[in-house]
Design a protein around this nucleic acid. Structure first.
Lengths: 137, 137
DNA sequence: CCGCATCCAGGAGGATACTG
DNA sequence: CAGTATCCTCCTGGATGCGG
């Protein structure tokens, strides 16, 4: 595979007769940021913007990510034009990643979502526990 | 299965040695709104708020969704406290769904994301096509 | 009308090992 | 150090059919 990205279905144009909004931009965006590591990667890159972060440094700052997923995620971001990739062709190669303007602009609504999450997820957790307890007990 | 929700992994506590922050609120939120139908369902419900929408009506307004997924998605929303469920115990039962305050509050950052998507997804699409064309040709 | 149960395919993503 | 390839597992979610 040469052009596959993690969360994207590569939908061929005109396969359906009606437009189902699977093409709707929001769905496409969620297919991207909904993948497990994308939003966190964007966040870490955003923290260093306008600076850059090396591959290994990213790995360190995203606990639990594998090289494969970090690599795949970064490829998606670069391909989407959300991140930049700069290779230093030294003997042990050093690759630096950064956010583009586009990527940085995505960080804003993403931060709003994060903010909502931090404010309200505890309540959602409590709601779930309440739902658990009321049928069981 | 009794308590499964679409996008949630229901991670048993202590199955891993050291949990990474899969527990971080943003991840949990994205696990929810990242599921295929959640955001659209919230959107449709939000459009009718403070009114309610019946099950069949929701199905009609979310093209392509199956009853199973609509049912599952709604259960998640209700369980999370984002939506309400009201049953009219008539002979053919009628079930009405609505958004809670919490659900409505989520709609705002979600709308911001939608706005970003509609503005910038075309650019992302172009970036992808450019990436396709440059290695081929 | 509403929803659940079952079956099933496809894809995300983790572990590991190997290249430049 | 940075990345690729392979294998494998689990989960999402689509199709269908039954039950209240």
């Amino acid at each position: 595979m040469t052009t596959s990205r993690p969360g994207t279905g590569e939908r061929p144009p005109g396969e359906r007769g009606d437009l189902l909004d699977e093409r709707c931009p929001t769905r496409q965006l969620l297919d991207r940021i909904g993948t497990k590591w994308t939003s966190m990667t964007v966040k870490v890159l955003a923290e260093e913007t306008p600076g850059e972060v090396r591959f290994a440094e990213l790995r360190r700052r995203i606990p639990g990510i594998s090289q494969k997923m970090l690599s795949t995620t970064l490829q998606s971001l670069v391909r989407d034009g959300l991140a930049t990739r700069r290779v230093e062709s030294t003997v042990p190669p050093a690759v630096h990643y950064g956010l583009t303007e586009l990527g940085l602009s995505l960080e804003r609504p993403l931060a709003a979502l994060r903010d909502w999450a931090e404010t309200h997820m505890p309540e959602i957790d409590r709601n779930n526990q309440a739902a658990d307890g009321s049928s069981a007990d």
